[in-house]
């Protein structure tokens, strides 16, 4: 199969998924509503923005409460993402169209890429709303380092959608679809989210990036992305039948 054909057909599948979503609005609005509700709850449970930056003493030194905000941000992204990814094959399943999808003369890796790109669009849209909301609610000062946050977000998303799409396709074939996805995906996603939190927690307090630490964490993210995009593309041949 030639490359242009692969790209073209995958792009058609992505367009199909996004068009279905644009008309049905079954996936993105629930993700957004969930992410917003969680942010609201966090805003209520955390101390007010003036006290967020104040140092609190802990064993081994002092930290500011704002240090945990990056953790909350990524946890919210993670859970909102899993809610959406669980619906990866839901449209086809509801309409009994899985067989027609599999009849598309396209390598399974192309199907994986198409589904992953659609999921990427959803999670990026959620983050597009969530990041400004977090900055507003928690009085985050991103300053000039906002582009670092965007770069980290892109790298996190690639690995996240690779794992999420692969496991969602497995979960879709079991009896308890929504239940099994987080059980499988959360342990696998540990490295991405540790790296994301580590890379962004300093940004939120107006600090720059530590060059040495940054290189290591970007390394983790890139390694994870490459490994899981490859595994996903290869394993999809067996994941969908």
């Amino acid at each position: 199969m030639n490359e242009a054909g692969w790209l073209h057909k995958s792009a058609l599948l992505v367009r199909k998924d996004l068009r279905v979503e644009a008309r049905g609005r079954d996936t993105l609005p629930p993700m957004l509503a969930f992410a917003f509700a969680v942010t609201l709850l966090l805003a209520f449970t955390l101390p007010g923005s003036t006290r967020l930056a104040a140092p609190v003493s802990v064993p081994g030194g002092t930290v500011a409460v704002v240090d945990v905000v990056s953790g909350f941000l990524w946890i919210t992204v993670l859970f909102a993402g899993l809610i959406g990814f669980a619906r990866t094959f839901e449209v086809e399943r509801e309409e009994g169209a899985i067989d027609s999808l599999l009849l598309v003369p396209l390598d399974r890796s192309g199907l994986f890429a198409a589904k992953a790109v659609a999921n990427l669009a959803y999670i990026a849209a959620v983050q597009g709303v969530l990041l400004p909301t977090f900055a507003l609610f928690f009085a985050l000062d991103l300053g000039a380092s906002w582009f670092v946050l965007v770069l980290v977000t892109i790298l996190v998303d690639l690995g996240f959608v690779a794992v999420g799409t692969l496991f969602a396709s497995l979960a879709a074939q079991t009896r308890s679809r929504e239940l099994i996805l987080p059980i499988l995906a959360l342990p696998a996603l540990v490295p991405v989210f540790i790296a994301a939190v580590e890379l962004t927690s300093d940004l939120f307090v107006g600090g720059g990036l530590d060059a040495v630490a940054t290189r290591g964490w970007f390394g983790v993210l890139i390694a994870f992305d490459v490994v899981f995009m490859t595994i996903g593309a290869l394993a999809f041949e067996f994941a969908i039948d």
């Binding site: 079991t174 790296a195 630490a213 983790v220 994870f224 067996f238």
Partner: peptide, 27 residues
């Protein structure tokens, strides 16, 4: 078939977890 994929993915994930946490703690 489904379980085999998880068995393979899990095995690739663990070294990454190991090294990422190693860096995390060292930092």
């Amino acid at each position: 078939r489904l379980a085999a994929i998880v068995g393979i993915v899990g095995f690739f994930d663990v070294p990454i977890v190991h090294y990422s946490v190693n860096w995390w703690r060292t930092l």
